[in-house]
Design a binder for these strands. Structure first.
Lengths: 173, 173
DNA sequence: TCCTGACATTCCAATAGTGACAGGTCGAAA
DNA sequence: TTTCGACCTGTCACTATTGGAATGTCAGGA
């Protein structure tokens, strides 16, 4: 149920069309909550039916601009403050859990790829940091917090992977 | 598609029934890849249809014990080494992203709850650490790696939350 | 003027995950 | 001997997520 809230959050800043939202998902939310076209448009229809958003304007090319309603803001607020975070699933740790089923050399290579992926993530985040105008309202302030979390996450994961490599049985099986 | 691999991974160690798997999901995989009953039994049927597992024994109470097949091991190996990790979704960071829509005081309280949640997570992991027999084959070795990751994650998040609180605008809006 | 690329929406089929329900069996303790 | 708790399997309906296809419109450059 978080997609709808992500959309409400974006609409809380300013009205937008489905297309606009999609772009925003690609740019600022890509690392946090990816969403596809079909999801965005589908959810927009539901939000509209539930009265959380309304069509605030219609433009060329059939463009419909949606704005958040008071009910939508309440829903957003409720989710933000009251709802419990979901249980997280972690693909990567699941694999690590079963790393014993491959050879130590393969396991080491696996961890090495993890380090590289974190390097790439960090690079990507640094690029976002560079390319963003950080003087641009609430989203900027909080975007920075999220960005910093990502950087810390990448650093943590990289250090862990390096440590983990030392814990693997030596030699090949 | 990771549920099936988690199950294959567990079955790679030793044959088990759906019920057994379910318990293992509750205990060792709870923080990594939660799964429900309906998912486990459903997936077991699919895995069986795909030839990745076979019924290796039938016990009392209709118990069916499943064992991984050679094809299943290959599938597991392929997933482990070749498949790309999924994009992660993060509920929590999504909320942080929209933290500007509530008052600074509420935001601070939100971050504070995050710290507490991490404390609880760490405590839970420490309990697992205490209660587990770490001399028990591959899963133990790798379980430790995962556990350590969890501890580092909790520490990272806590420190981040404390830092983030200092970044929030002061006073109430 | 024509073409292209960005803008914009909608529908569809398939897989994954949640939560509740339903039903049944065995072992051991009271 | 009864009954209770652990054991054990399954189904259903719903929601979420993925990925792709189909369709059409407008603005601006060649």
């Amino acid at each position: 149920m978080s997609l709808r809230h992500a959309m409400l959050g974006l609409l809380a800043e300013e009205p937008a069309s489905g297309y606009d939202l999609l772009r925003r998902f690609e740019v600022s939310l890509a690392n946090v909550w990816p969403a596809t076209q079909s999801q965005v448009y589908g959810e927009l229809a539901k939000l509209s039916a539930d009265g959380h958003v309304t069509v605030s304007a219609e433009g060329p090319r059939g463009r419909k601009e949606y704005a958040i309603t008071e009910a939508g803001r309440e829903e957003l607020r409720h989710w933000l403050l009251e709802e419990r975070p979901r249980r997280r699933r972690d693909d990567l740790m699941l694999r690590v859990f079963f790393l014993g089923t491959v050879s130590p050399a393969e396991a080491r290579a696996f961890l090495e790829r993890g380090v590289q992926r974190m390097d790439a993530l960090e690079e990507g985040l640094r690029a976002v940091e560079r390319d963003t105008d950080w003087n641009d309202g609430d989203l900027a302030v909080n975007g920075r917090l999220v960005l910093e979390w990502g950087l810390r996450f990448a650093a943590m994961h990289r250090e862990w992977a390096e440590w983990a490599a030392t814990q693997l049985p030596s030699g090949d099986r």
